[in-house]
Simulated scan of single mutants.
Amino acid sequence: MTDTPERIQKCSRLFQIAALLREQHATVRDIARHLYPTASVHGPGWSGIERSIQRDLDDLELLEPDFTRLGGRPPRYRIDTHRTHLHPVQTLVLHAAARLTYHRASGQKTHHAAALNTLTGWLPEHLQPIMHRSLQDLGERRTRTREDLNLEHAATAWLGAHPLRFEYQKPGGSGAWRTNIIHPYLIEAHPQNLDLYVIGREVTFHDDVRTFKLSRMRGLQVIRDDTYTIPATFDPHAFFHAAWGVVGSQHTPPETIHLRFRQDAAYRILEGGYAHLSEPTQNADGSIDVTVTAPVDSSGLPREVIPWILSFGPRVNVLGPDHIRAHWLNELRDAATHATPTDAPMRETPA
């Protein structure tokens, strides 16, 4: 018997609904929005869509042994077929990483929420309600922000091995926006701020591996009629070996910085947990000396480690090299200059 178009459409709907319910709990309205994203709730034909989906759910209940109708208003549905057999710790690590990027991301977080919904579907039943409630802050918002679109374009280029064209401006808002083309090798989250960065060969100006902040990129375009190959000579471990964040080094050796921490900060260094620090040398006054290695940018400065050094305020002294010590001192002097005696301290506004 030849399938009619209506029968083929119904088969397609059943497969799509089953796939959705294996990933997450869903109501009839959730399923309708998933299948018909351009349809308007309460608009013409919406009630017919919901009735059709309800009939599909009745059919799935007969076809799927793990189909479950949950209580509540509105009722939810699920299919308990497990999609993963990961070790519990592996599941925890994936879910924790997704939650970190979700909470750090700005905008509508469309893709982050979808990824979390998928991972939540892997969790046991007693964890499902609280995880779903944690995503309810999205509410009815459906507009995608530039950051969502940036992530979509970057991921498409990376997974499809397509070059990515975009406009970029140097940090600090100085200089003109200029068009770059990159062959994405990696998309990495910064370990401190969890912002996403695209790392790959920039072929327009440098023909070298560069790091670009995703949220600073604009006008992204995937060059779909072209592809690239990640060379076997690119070693991520070597590139990030001395990195404090996402800025690695492929050709230029990292800089070694000599630091002296006062006694009241020494304990924090001795506790450990900082990468690329040498074994501390204890001084008679309780201070300690260490060296730290970090990659430098085109100006010769280790930009990612300098904020960490400045975070210790007067409790650290940069002993060398001279150009890094000079930059550190200038930063401190500029801060002191802006904090003039005429600046009034901020006070709480009376209730």
Rank of each mutant, 00 (worst) to 15 (best):
55 R>I: 10
14 L>Y: 04
26 A>W: 07
44 P>D: 12
41 V>M: 12
42 H>F: 14
11 C>M: 14
14 L>H: 04
71 G>C: 03
9 Q>C: 07
41 V>N: 05
54 Q>R: 14
47 S>C: 07
47 S>M: 13
18 A>W: 08
38 T>P: 01
60 L>S: 01
71 G>V: 00
19 A>C: 09
43 G>L: 06
11 C>A: 13
31 I>V: 11
7 R>Y: 11
69 R>C: 03
46 W>D: 06
11 C>I: 15
53 I>C: 04
7 R>F: 11
25 H>N: 13
53 I>L: 01
67 F>P: 01
52 S>E: 09
67 F>A: 03
30 D>S: 07
25 H>S: 09
7 R>A: 15
31 I>L: 14
67 F>N: 00
57 L>I: 10
45 G>W: 06
33 R>P: 04
51 R>N: 12
24 Q>W: 00
17 I>N: 04
12 S>I: 13
55 R>M: 05
63 L>S: 05
68 T>F: 02
39 A>N: 06
55 R>V: 09
63 L>C: 08
15 F>N: 10
35 L>M: 02
44 P>M: 11
40 S>F: 07
71 G>P: 01
21 L>T: 06
43 G>I: 13
35 L>C: 02
35 L>N: 01
17 I>Q: 01
69 R>G: 02
62 L>W: 10
8 I>L: 11
39 A>S: 13
10 K>F: 08
30 D>C: 04
61 E>L: 02
48 G>K: 10
24 Q>K: 12
44 P>F: 08
